[in-house]
Design a protein around this nucleic acid. Structure first.
Length: 484
RNA sequence: GGCUCCAUGGUCAAGCGGUUAAGACAUCGCCCUUUCACGGCGGUAACCCGGGUUCAAUUCCCGGUGGAGUCACCA
């Protein structure tokens, strides 16, 4: 019987980039490692930024990656609703904000945008920039507030932060973090449209939903101390904070939707496997005590210990992701692989070839599925190659020797009926033995003639088996023609 | 710029006072081989700088430097 409860709390503003996914994953793992509860909460308090379809992306991504939530908008666990706009509709946040106003921990503010803007550009006597609200409306009398309200003036509710001293909060990864209170802004709790701000709704909901571990990206590290004042004012217990190190691009900048960084779905479209993406992302900011790198989600649940998380940001390295994806592809049983590979093969191959044989050849040679195409194009049509290709130092071949070999082999291949790889290979071995030359001396020209490519998946006879007698002979003839 | 965080090879990342400073990706070379790939073997490559503390610092403390994050009626 565990008491760990975590949540993934995205806002439906677009696609899920890998940073979001990693946060969701860690929240899931922390809960599941302790047999706890993982929940999904939708933070849609900004109606302007709401993006149509974003909700579906969130659901789809969590489902496909296997990060299934125990509670959420579609699975009430008793502390719902799990969508903040729905909670707002019941007046929940306003109720708590008003409580703070009554306690004297918060106050109504009627300052308009112009005044706030002018505040930002003004400079204090000491010459330093004023970065926080000047508490102008804190001095309003009860009567003035009432009058403004009655007048229908737009208002917000701000928290009253102390201006002296320091505030310290504890993060399980980063330790104690202390900031001067003068830095703390009288942040807005309730916006003029009646919706709570993220900062406020987050604290209220985390408490009401019994969240024990707040897992989020460390871009929130600097706003965390403000939360403590809120918890303090309410007399609530502060949850365990687990701030995850940032994931950055190759320029060491934070991943963001705005900059067009890869989302989970982009990666899938690029041919990556969900399992590989999840596995890779898990290792960005965390590592097991041994050297293992390949983990299924279940294995991660078992192994994951958030105390082993690192503090420094990690670069998202597509090259390593590709490697890992290749590992997953190689480990796939053939039928599963074929199912995924078939569409890519069919994009290139229209002829009546045995596509499974082609797939077999390609499985150990690709890292992502679209790689298939460049490997197999020659099956469909012989490319117009240069006869320079017949020259290979190690094989001791050149245009002349190749011509001779192909000329001698042509009638043999024409006569042969069995075009299985084994039979063809036996034929070539026999030829090589008679000729008293190295395998490559004969294999290289044949492979070149039937493929027209420098490198191919599979050798000469494997290719011939697939394209069949008629095409093989035609291609060898073509080779002889080119070389003559 | 203020505040905060971070700092081991190109990248991910072990290490938590005494090590020949792991491992993985990438890279290079060799082997295997019917080309390539797979697989196997090996190489190059790192503790940001300066002070302390200590018999002993990559490891602890301070300062610097560098990088990042954050400073909204966005989350």
């Amino acid at each position: 019987m565990s008491t760990v409860r975590t949540r993934f709390a995205p806002s439906p503003t677009g696609r899920m980039h890998v940073g979001n996914l990693r946060t969701a994953l860690y929240a899931y793992l922390i809960a599941k490692h302790e047999n706890g509860t993982f929940m999904l909460r939708i933070e849609d308090t900004d109606q302007e930024r709401f993006v149509n379809g974003a909700l579906e992306i969130i659901y789809r991504t969590l489902e496909k990656t296997g990060l299934v939530h125990d509670e959420g908008p579609d699975k009430d666990g008793g502390v719902g609703p799990y969508v903040q706009s729905e909670r707002q509709a019941s007046g929940l946040y306003l109720k708590y904000a008003k409580q703070l106003v009554e306690q004297g921990d918060a106050y109504y503010c009627f300052c308009d945008k112009e005044r706030l803007d002018s505040l930002k550009s003004s400079v204090s006597e000491s010459g330093t920039e004023i970065v926080v609200y000047d508490k102008h409306c804190l001095n309003l009398s009860k009567e003035e507030v009432a009058a403004n309200l009655a007048e229908g003036k737009p208002w917000v509710i701000r928290i009253n932060m102390p201006t002296e001293g320091t505030t310290t909060f504890h993060d399980d990864i980063y330790g104690d973090i202390t900031v001067p209170n003068a830095e703390l802004d009288d942040m807005i709790l309730i916006k003029s449209d009646g919706y709570p701000t993220y900062n406020f709704a987050n604290v209220i909901d985390d408490h009401l939903m019994g969240i024990t571990h707040v897992v989020r990206g460390n871009e929130y590290l600097s706003s965390a101390p403000k939360y403590n004042r809120l918890y303090e004012a309410f007399g609530w217990e502060v949850p365990v904070y687990v701030h995850c190190p940032l994931i950055t691009d190759e320029n060491h900048k934070k991943l963001s939707k705005r900059c067009g960084h890869s989302s989970y779905e982009d990666l899938i479209d690029q041919g990556f496997l969900t399992e590989a993406v999840v596995n890779y992302v898990a290792l960005l900011g965390w590592s097991p005590s041994d050297n293992r790198e390949i983990f299924s989600l279940e294995e991660l649940v078992e192994t994951f210990d958030y105390h082993h998380m690192s503090k420094s940001p990690a670069v998202f390295d597509q090259v390593k992701l590709k490697w890992m994806n290749g590992e997953y592809i190689k480990a796939m049983d053939f039928d599963t692989f074929y199912e995924k590979a078939e569409p890519y093969i069919k994009e290139i191959i229209t002829k009546d070839y045995d596509l499974k044989k082609i797939a077999k050849l390609v499985q150990s040679r690709i890292e992502i599925f679209p790689d298939i195409k460049e490997h197999i194009d020659f099956f469909e049509a012989l490319p117009d190659y240069d006869i320079e290709m017949y020259t290979h130092k190690k094989m001791k071949t050149n245009a002349e020797t190749s011509l001779e070999v192909l000329k001698e082999l042509l009638p043999i291949f024409e006569a042969q009926e069995d075009y299985s790889n084994d039979a063809l290979f036996a034929t070539l071995k026999e030829y090589v033995a008679k000729k008293e030359c190295k395998n490559g001396y004969a294999m290289w020209p044949v492979r070149t003639a039937v493929s027209g490519k420098q490198n191919t998946p599979g050798g000469a006879t494997e290719i011939m088996e697939i394209i069949g007698k008629e095409e093989s002979v035609a291609r060898i003839r073509k080779g002889i023609e080119k070389l003559s």
